[in-house]
Amino acid sequence: MTALTLAHGTATTAAFLPVRGVADRISDLFWRRPRLLLALLLAPPLAWLGIVYLGSLAALLLQSFYSIDEFSGLVVPEFTLRTYAELFRPSNFDIIVRTVTMAACVTLASAIIAFPIAYFAARYAKGRWKAAFYLGIMLPLWSSYLVKVYAWKLILAKEGIVSWAFEGLGASAILNAVLALPTIGGSSLSTSYIGTFLVFLYVWLPFMILPMQASLERVPRSMLEASADLGASSRQTFRHVILPLAMPGVIAGSIFTFSLTLGDYIIPQIIGSSRRFIGQAVYQLQGTAGNIPLAAAFAMVPILIMLVYLAIAKRKGAFDAL
């Protein structure tokens, strides 16, 4: 025993010295009072998040209860619910409905497209392929958001690659027919809801794949074998074993796709029609319009929606899949 510890070198010398330094005494204190160490470790990050983040959220909440004086354009710092009432004006309420609808569509579509990728990566990709899949999802996830949006501006432009491809296939009529559809159409893909939807889908897709893949990887193989032993067809196994076990991952991914779509203002600004989304409304109201109370009230909408969403997700066990 002694030989072993001696051989270990520098770290051990303290044990043989009767003189104990400040560091040792502090260590003893930590050992006796682990809560003290915990408090010391947590204090700086909690102070930061508490002051900077929660403090700012409080400021946001506070401002949303103020209102703006219609004549002077100045903020009146008195408690009122008038600003919130303004959210229900048809023009404003439309923005909320439009954004939530878009978020729901994007979430649904990304779940459908993400599933085969996640399933393949979790079940079939081995060794080198596994690494390739992982990087194949991580690189688009982490690469620049603006560059991705920009790439789609190039793709969807009137003279861009999509029009070119449709023309090359002799299918321009189809593209024009799609663009002629009411509401979702437009003069070109980059000024239509279809364009906005595609870019949202593209940009948030990796956020759906990763938690999905994680939860699929956790499905024990023995359960699939048990299901087969009990006579389930592969389709039944998929429906009654794999899908329910993958659900927490799907919900975890949907938190991201839904929340990110709710709050984004850059994508609809660059690719889409002139009809606004919540994010754009917030941005314009706080900037050019100078109506911070209404901007704050608008920003509370995604918070409330997401709090409800997170509460449901938590009940479904999605937090373990994050």
Partner: peptide, 15 residues
């Protein structure tokens, strides 16, 4: 990161 970036941004702006 769970809440949209615009909320972090707008909150800080309000603060």
């Amino acid at each position: 990161i769970a809440l949209p970036g615009i909320i972090t941004g707008m909150s800080l702006r309000s603060a």
